[in-house]
């Protein structure tokens, strides 16, 4: 935790890609066990914001604090910090040359320094948790999209992270596979995991989210309890966006 009781704090984040001004001064504080849902039109900077939290994108200006460490400080060991936050991508990004279980054990062994046996035990436990213990020896190409994404989630969870970041985890899935992944995410939220979720699944945002952020053109335009925002959007841009997606 940071000094002020938050797990993640972004202070005045600005980000440019060349001349493109993508994040225009973001302040955000996330408390432990909170589930923050991020919505907004395409290109509004949601992914960039999410990727700033684990420093996959380096902010041009501003500070990122995670668990008492300033990640934007030049001498911070980012690998150490990243070992404590998991990220799930739209395109799964499983390692295709490794079996499902090896996808999980790689970082357990190389980053956390577990022995092979310990790592395999923990990985099996985690695969079991997402209902895929029978697929441990399959390669990613032998799994369905939903199964791949669940392995990817298990891969992140096996590290026992303090924070999970989801970037449109269900967008690449066939409709009938979406619910199995959302189910895993919902269970996780109920177990008390701190989560930041970028999603187009408004049902999920309403049911599972504690807080909803609406982003447009690189800024957080509106935030609040999901049900309130859906029912009474205050901002014009929120209204027009919600009218399109709901």
């Amino acid at each position: 935790m940071n000094d002020d009781g938050t797990l993640v704090r972004l202070d005045d984040i600005h980000k440019w890609f060349g001349d493109l001004y993508v994040l225009q001064g973001i302040d955000l504080a996330i408390r432990p066990q909170e589930v923050v849902v991020l919505i907004g039109p395409s290109g509004s900077g949601k992914s960039t914001l999410l990727r700033t939290i684990n420093m996959l994108e380096e902010p041009t200006e501003g500070q990122v604090w995670f668990d008492g460490t300033e990640l934007t400080h030049i001498r911070t060991d980012l690998n150490e910090a990243r070992a404590h936050m998991g990220m799930v991508f739209q395109s799964f990004n499983l390692f295709p040359h490794l079996k499902a279980i090896e996808n999980l054990t790689l970082a357990l062994i190389k980053v956390l320094g577990l022995s092979r046996e310990e790592a395999e035990d923990r990985a099996m436990e985690q695969l079991d948790h997402v209902g895929l213990s029978d697929k441990a020896d399959s390669y990613p190409s032998q799994l369905s999209g939903g199964q791949q994404q669940r392995v990817a989630i298990a891969r992140a969870l096996a590290m026992r992270p303090k924070l999970m970041l989801f970037d449109e985890a269900t967008s690449a899935l066939d409709p009938e596979l979406v619910s199995e992944v959302l189910g895993v995410m919902q269970d996780l939220a109920e177990e008390g995991m701190t989560m930041v979720v970028v999603t187009h699944e408004m049902g999920f945002a309403r049911e599972v989210g504690n807080r909803l952020l609406f982003m447009d053109e690189g800024a957080i335009v509106e935030e609040g309890v999901p049900a309130d925002v859906f029912a009474h959007p205050r901002h014009e841009r929120t209204k027009s966006f919600l009218s399109q997606v709901l």
Partner: peptide, 30 residues
Amino acid sequence: IERGQMEASRTLGLSYLQSLQYVIVPQAIR
């Protein structure tokens, strides 16, 4: 090799060199 492979690997806490060694180079060699 897709950028996402390096990103996924770094996200797990592997260093740049570890990511090359265990994730990128094995795929690239094939």
